[in-house]
Design a protein around this nucleic acid. Structure first.
Lengths: 190, 190
DNA sequence: GTCTATAAGATGATAGAC
DNA sequence: GTCTATCATCTTATAGAC
């Protein structure tokens, strides 16, 4: 999707609202107020709220792909890669007690368009596939140990991180997330 | 809270809506339609939506306490207790792809009254404390093994189960939950 | 592109009849 | 206890001026 600065700013604000309040707890007016525009101007860029949601998921999916590619490029050790992965989640909750956008939309998924829901699943698949690959790399290199399939272990890791954010949010205590994430990765030690 | 049949039915419907759509994605009218009453009648029992939410959390907290007491009474083996615990979550997602009420409200927590948010945390504390106790029982009896504090292990288990529900929901596939739950408990084997 | 104006419907909530 | 009627406000969205 071709995007200019204004659209990007609108999505920034919308994403923050999704992460803190959820898709059904903010209005176009909330966005308009924060970007200091009228609601009609928001609709100029995103005709409907559903359009905005689709753009949001799509952009975040791409951003996450870029972040994971960056980790692959900068980091060699598979265990360190997993730590970086977990830290992406941790830094999110540390910055204003935000939930993962995908995790929040998963909660709202019954109220999303089928199309948005599908891209949400594809986004989770991306995360799971990256984890699966890193786990296999680590097992092959002899630096990571886990039982069973890498696919299932990846799914396990993703579920735990999402759940740890969800619960920690309620306490507004990022420390709760950290304790769980540390335990999660500790399990994988050789 | 003293409750009659009508109030109980209203809360049943409201809870199902919370679990599937989230607190901010259903209206008093949605409840009224399903119980075949007018919105004003709903307000007769629960003056505000926030009142209804408080009653919902409070009732579910008590119900969960009863379920856990039932497990304690019927089951001796700590590992089996944990399996029963996980099955409470599994049966929830199997019944209409529902999220845990506490987990869903955790996502919505930024939009809840402070009082509701506090009881939500207390509800999570209940779950965590029960898990902690069972873990200690199991370790003492030599049938459960885990590293570190029981408190942190309990927190880890709760996070994973909530996250597994959240992600599985998006795929409408309870099998995804089961795979994660099985792995979660498999770790505790002696 | 951004605005004003406005529509049509939803929403939470209340007053008062029965 | 349930209803009708009504309210003020919010919400998403559109038309048309500038």
């Amino acid at each position: 999707m071709l995007m200019n600065q204004t659209m990007s700013t609108i999505l920034d604000v919308a994403q923050e609202l999704v992460q803190t309040r959820g898709y059904n707890a903010f209005s176009i007016k909330d966005i308009a107020n924060r970007v200091e525009m009228r609601t009609s101007s928001i609709h100029y860029y995103f005709p409907t709220k559903a359009d905005l949601c689709r753009a949001l998921i799509s952009r975040h999916r791409q951003r996450v792909a870029d972040v994971l590619a960056g980790i692959d490029q900068k980091v060699g050790d598979p265990r360190t890669k997993l730590e970086r992965f977990a830290y992406v989640f941790q830094s999110t909750i540390e910055a204003g007690n935000r939930m993962c956008p995908f995790g929040m939309l998963a909660a709202d998924s019954d109220t999303l368009e089928p199309e948005s829901c599908e891209e949400l699943r594809a986004s989770f698949d991306d995360l799971e596939n990256w984890l699966k690959r890193v786990l296999l790399e680590g097992r092959k290199a002899g630096v990571i140990a886990f039982a069973g399939s890498a696919q299932h272990e990846a799914r396990f890791i993703l579920s735990t991180l999402e759940g740890a954010m969800l619960v920690a949010r309620t306490y507004k205590d990022p420390g709760r997330f950290e304790v769980v994430a540390r335990r999660l990765l500790g399990r994988l030690k050789k």
